[in-house]
Nucleic acid binder design. Sequence first.
DNA 1: TACTTTCAACGAAAAAATTCGTATTTTTAC
DNA 2: GTAAAAATACGAATTTTTTCGTTGAAAGTA
Lengths: 127, 127
Amino acid sequence: MARSKSSRPTDRELTILRILWDNGPSTVRQVNETMNEDEDTGYTTTLKLMQIMTEKGLVVRDESGRQHVYKPAATEEKTQKQLVGDLLERAFSGSAEKLVMRALSAKKVSAKELARIKKLLDELEGE
Amino acid sequence: MARSKSSRPTDRELTILRILWDNGPSTVRQVNETMNEDEDTGYTTTLKLMQIMTEKGLVVRDESGRQHVYKPAATEEKTQKQLVGDLLERAFSGSAEKLVMRALSAKKVSAKELARIKKLLDELEGE
DNA sequence: TACTTTCAACGAAAAAATTCGTATTTTTAC
DNA sequence: GTAAAAATACGAATTTTTTCGTTGAAAGTA
């Protein structure tokens, strides 16, 4: 039976999505090996997570070969937008300004990036 | 025994912190009533959460009166910075630029806010 | 004083997330 | 062809988070 769907991905699920976005469609083994660069995780643990993610609709899998190949169901953009929108409401009471301020103070940003962000702001202002 | 500490607040914990930041130091009853504006939660549920948060060091409480008064242990700023920094790493591979882009696309921002953000960027650029 | 209300403490149930062991099937290597 | 390796499925244990019922103490009230 299909699971609940459409709530935020959990931490582990996000780890896996991140790997799939970075590396492209992958098998369980490939994902597991990438995960193990940071922290050891049993193969069947990764497998189970990815099976659950399939049920939830977070990933889709190609079962035609012996090794199933998984890819994210949603684009990186859409998921990021959902996650940041969620944090915006829960931690920032909807104030995007404050969130941006905190983001820029949490991490040093290069001059080039700053310039690109400013350009984005100009575009938004134009609307 | 004191609990693990220093990991992100959970969803419910963040809800409570949000209330404490907005309303100032509060009793369990006050927090619970605010929570119930959105979604019914039993009094003892809120109490238990706040007790656990005390053990974790997320809040501190004044036990001098009959009704304990709770306040956040960390500032709103510090917690927000932690949360956004965490999301930055987990979902955006550390790219603040992308996070800001997504934030601004997730939520409409007023012209005034845009202006303030630009000012902030100018200040950062000056460094 | 006796009754009611209000509160914190505590334990535990329920739900959600994470982890892993075992069984079975398929492929590969000898 | 047989044994080893590699894969999925499945169930279940564990951990974390969330929820709540019960108990007993303190405070208020008739």
